[in-house]
Simulated assay, not measured.
Amino acid sequence: MASDSLYQLRWGIISTGYIATSFVKDLLVDPKTRDTRDVAHKVVAVGSRTVESAQAFIDRLIPENDEVKAYGSYDGVFADETVQAVYIGTPHTFHYDNALAAIKAGKHVLCEKPVTTNSAELRSLIAAAKEHSVFFMEAMWTRFQPLVKEVKKIAESGDLGKPVVLHADLSGDFDIHNIQTTHRILDPALGGGALLDLGPYPLVWAIIALYENPANNKAHPSRVTGAMVKTPISGVDSSTGFTLTFDPTVSSNTESSLAAQALLSCSITLDAPTPGVTIRFERGTITIEPPIYCPKTFKVTYLNKGVQQEGAKAASEGSFSKTFEYVGKGWHFQADEVARCISQGKLESNLWGHDKSLLEMEIFDEVRKQGNYVFPPGVEKVVEAV
């Protein structure tokens, strides 16, 4: 504890790639710049394949701090007694082994998305985290950003009515004909393809807007349908579309009253569209500007000229838009959530709990099954019993 009112969480960083770099840069942003005064963060250890690469990472990002330890293995970080929480930024198919090792070492874990390659692996990790009494969360950073909280507030206020149809897409042109087949986006041994790499982001908006809507009462989609286009380069999905149908007439949750669909897509051969997310309600529409993983601007249009929200800028009659600005790139909000949960003795987040990550992975399992995308032998460390 840095003081009676400020809880400082000590982090160990696993991997020294782009994602870990982005996360650590945001950890070092002064929390007061985002009006956060209850938690703070400190990096105390970094693990990489070699001590030299770990030290280079530290020298580049934390040059003024000679107390950060460099390890030439991940196990060194897991064994470090000064580390409270571990951030895992390794490729998808390493998440299970890395997270399990951290959990068994008694460390709290924030693991990059997709948290595992399938739902069976995730159930195993959740069970292990409970057994060892450690906090465990998927790093679904979008869910904790201020724009998302504001959109949820408006969407669930009742002014727009219930959501009916959601369209969301995250695509990126990876120039797949001119990169090596060992690149993470093309290599099936690394969980390559559009679905696992990009799919979590259109899906998180469906979970936020539909699954989390009070009218849904936590009912799972009554039907999931998906289709894939695969690239002959390596057999991974180059484009995937999937639909989630919430139909209260066939839902096992009799208290759900949400009748809605989410039409979701992702591609590794296209640029992202604008808007990236469109949520159509009974009495209006919310559109989200890209990038949908860290959006800064949204627009609300009321069909019934609804009341304007406080602090918003009117764009036209019956509509308004709002833009958010803050220091950093948006990774620190999830870190704040981890610190708060750990300081309060929680084992999972109320905002992005285990149930939502499980729903995500179950949907991906079903879409891959329908698309006949099977990982190479040995990639999935845990599989469901047949």
Score class of each variant (00 low, 15 high):
M1C: 11
S5I: 10
W11L: 12
I13S: 00
I13G: 02
T16V: 15
Y18E: 08
A20L: 07
S22L: 15
F23V: 11
V24A: 06
L28G: 00
A40T: 11
V43S: 10
V44S: 09
V51S: 07
A54E: 00
Q55C: 13
Q55N: 12
R60P: 00
L61W: 03
P63M: 01
V68W: 06
A79C: 01
A79V: 05
A85W: 06
V86F: 04
I88K: 00
I88S: 01
G89W: 01
T90A: 13
F94S: 11
Y96A: 06
N98G: 04
K104T: 11
H108G: 02
C111Q: 15
E121Q: 08
L122C: 05
A128C: 06
E131W: 13
E131D: 05
S133W: 03
S133T: 09
F135G: 01
F135H: 11
Q145T: 09
S157K: 06
S157N: 02
G158S: 06
G158H: 05
G161D: 09
P163F: 04
V164R: 15
V164D: 03
H167W: 08
L170N: 09
S171E: 07
H177T: 05
H177K: 08
N178M: 03
N178Q: 09
Q180N: 15
T181L: 13
T182C: 05
T182F: 07
I185A: 01
L186E: 01
A194W: 02
L195H: 02
L195G: 02
L196G: 03
L198R: 01
G199K: 13
P200T: 02
P202D: 07
W205E: 05
A209I: 04
P214M: 04
A219N: 10
H220M: 14
R223E: 14
V224F: 08
T225Y: 12
A227W: 10
T231R: 09
P232W: 09
S234Q: 10
G235R: 05
V236A: 10
G241V: 14
G241M: 12
F242H: 08
T245Q: 11
T249L: 03
T254F: 01
L264D: 11
S265K: 05
L270F: 01
P273M: 12
R280E: 15
E282K: 15
G284H: 08
G284K: 12
T285D: 02
T285K: 14
I288V: 12
E289W: 09
C294A: 15
P295N: 11
T297I: 04
F298G: 03
V300M: 02
N304E: 14
G306P: 03
Q308K: 15
Q309W: 06
G311F: 05
A312P: 07
K313N: 07
A314I: 11
S319W: 09
S321M: 07
S321T: 13
K322T: 03
Y326C: 09
G328Y: 15
H332P: 03
F333N: 08
F333E: 07
A335Q: 06
A335G: 02
E337R: 14
V338S: 07
R340G: 04
G345F: 04
K346M: 05
E348S: 11
S349V: 00
N350D: 11
W352F: 10
H354V: 00
K356W: 02
L358E: 12
L359Y: 03
L359C: 07
E360L: 03
E362A: 09
E362M: 10
V367K: 12
R368I: 03
N372F: 00
Y373W: 06
P376A: 00
P376L: 04
P377F: 01
G378W: 13
E380D: 14
E384N: 09
